[in-house]
Amino acid sequence: MLAKRIIPCMDVRDGRVVKGINFVNIKDAGDPVELAEEYNKQGADELVFLDITASSDKRDTMVNVVSEVAKKVFIPFTVGGGIRSVEDMRKILNAGADKISVNTAAVENPSLINEGALKFGSQCIVLAIDAKKNPKMKNGFEVYTYGGRKPTGIDAISWAKKGEKLGAGEILLTSMDRDGTKKGFDLELTKKISGSVNIPVIASGGVGNLEHFVEAFTKGKADAALAASIFHYKEYTVKDIKDYCRKEKVVVRE
């Protein structure tokens, strides 16, 4: 049976993994290659790197990080953050990443999804959606861009469907209401999106304990679950999560 995936996410700034809450008190958390190797050892199914480098002239640092990780870690990994063109995608994929994720750039220019999918295949294109509850939206959730700072007036479920139609291969869904709260994934949002598209949905935002992962899969119908801080602060290892999932009869990779 296809296993549910556990995916650690790392924020990378100027070539280093950083941790911090809402971009405040950002601290160095280590070398991306070493952390990738560590999570791989723990049994991570995939990895996500989010480039939060502020200045665009330092973007090539990320390309170097990608190529170093790709030489040493042989599980799939996704790179997101600041990807605005097919050329940006090409650089990252050629450096050895398996997938790229687009968020703001895709909202502002949806054809980017289509162009990327045609060029590199849908399996390479992850549509990242940051969504927040808003009863005024048709399905109750609104898409935000610019790292959650800008409301777009777009209904999240409609956007997910459109993204699939344009050729996205997966959806990385972050609940802004839950992000950083440790209250658990937004199961309502996750279930709604997962039920509306026929591509895998990665749940993100809000995980605080082991049960939250199980819920994301059983109640949220997610195909994968992503977390950052619980790994960085060593609250749980990937193995802890998988052991618990197995106990709760969720199929995960050994």
Partner: peptide, 10 residues
């Protein structure tokens, strides 16, 4: 089932 199949299978 979701198509494509993406992920780890035995």
């Amino acid at each position: 089932l979701k198509i494509p199949q993406i992920g780890w299978n035995s």
